[in-house]
Design a protein around this nucleic acid. Structure first.
Lengths: 230, 230
DNA sequence: TCCGATAAAGGTCATGCTGACCTTAAGCGG
DNA sequence: CCGCTTAAGGTCAGCATGACCTTTATCGGA
């Protein structure tokens, strides 16, 4: 390779920023201010800048869109998308990243000029025609990757505050998977994996019931055996 | 996005073509005929062509490198790589694909002018300095993805001929994972998952022992529960 | 022709994880 | 003080796994 001329394409990074807000699984979308797809909802994203790694670009975009530092977010790549007609203006290859965050303090402080808003994931997955470009596919793939990884990694803690109760963690699984889990069996499982959770000594704020122990993520990032998803 | 100018980069597709040859896990590499990295080993690949999807480019490169039609290969994306200095000649973003194949009839019929050869994966993973560019990382990621997916999908059948014995399938797992599996428990597992294997009625060629039943891949592509890898 | 080697196929049994379900603990509000 | 709510912990049957053994079927050599 590289003997030929090097054909040129535009390379973009698009973000699927996922969170749990008010017992709902939501994604951050922007409203397009220009053609094509003017006014349509789209994933936040932008072009790769010179001297910038793909992951760096993802972090930069995340900071721009949320107005927050990307610290505390979990970011990982979903994949590349390069269908020739995916952008009507020309050849654009997009690298899709997903970011997971706990419920954010500032709901939508778009540092960029565009209007950003949280939208429930379920509605979007059901209706394929609400997103610009091929962003419905990017969203579908990112959500599936997130759901898959919940079962065998500690990814769900990314949806929780730094210190959390087992119930909060369980709610993350229940909302992302859209299932109900047995509280007792769930606790047995997550506390039984060595190094998965470490007790933070303290107890949670009163909620009308017995106070819960607070935990922090432990050194173990993989859940073995996996939490069955069925 | 897309309000700004569209910065241009070269987009390439690189291939990690994996197979099992002679009880060894091997990958197809080419020897570079030009600078940079002249004479070094590299993954086969090439630039994305106009009007071509990423997956189409991967299939085209695969056909060019192996001289075979890409039918019968399993191909899937590994991810995108875009570190600014990964190619000394300029900005090149690569999309890495992996292809899995049974032992190939023509060992190395490079349709391209470059010399191609099979190299054991184990040696390459041990020594990070033998591959050009960041191809050691691409290889590492692709191999890890393949190993992971063996446990919960039917990916291992991609290393077997169209009809195969349970021993052949088990050998695929043993070689890719570099472990030894109990033949009896392995059979119980893979025959116990409904739709995973379907008996092809016939029996295998004599090998000095009791003839084995031949199987074909069934409709089930996921192994549930997963085959433990530990 | 018989026998041993070889590999396939199937069975047994203890162990560990899971799902369903129940009991106890601890705080809050009336 | 009592009842409600949530956390935490326990019991028990069912299933999958790992270790190991027995039986079946074919080949090659004595």
């Amino acid at each position: 390779m590289f003997g030929e001329v090097m054909p040129q394409s535009a390379v973009a990074v698009d973000l699927v920023i996922l969170t749990i807000r008010g017992d709902e699984f939501q994604v951050l979308l922007v409203e397009r201010a220009k053609q094509p797809f003017l006014g349509a909802l789209a994933l936040p994203g932008g072009f790769l800048e010179p001297g910038e790694d793909l992951a760096q670009a993802a972090h930069r975009e995340l900071a721009e869109e949320t107005g927050l530092s990307a610290d505390g977010f979990h970011i990982e790549q979903v994949g590349g998308y390069g269908a020739p007609e995916r952008d009507p203006r020309g050849r654009v290859v997009s690298i899709c990243y997903m970011a997971l965050a706990p419920d954010l303090p500032a709901p939508t402080a778009g540092g960029d000029a565009r209007a950003a808003s949280w939208v429930p994931v379920g509605e979007l997955l059901a209706g394929p025609e609400r997103l610009a470009f091929d962003h419905h596919r990017l969203l579908t793939d990112a959500v599936e990757q997130a759901r898959d990884k919940l079962s065998y990694t500690n990814l769900a803690v990314s949806f929780c505050p730094p210190r959390f109760t087992i119930s909060q963690l369980r709610r993350a699984y229940e909302i992302v998977w859209d299932v109900r889990l047995d509280p007792s069996n769930f606790r047995r499982k997550v506390t039984g994996v060595p190094g998965f959770l470490v007790a933070a000594g303290d107890e949670s704020a009163p909620t009308g019931g017995r106070p819960a122990t607070l935990y922090e993520p432990g050194p173990a990032t993989r859940l073995h055996p996996a939490l069955p998803r069925d």
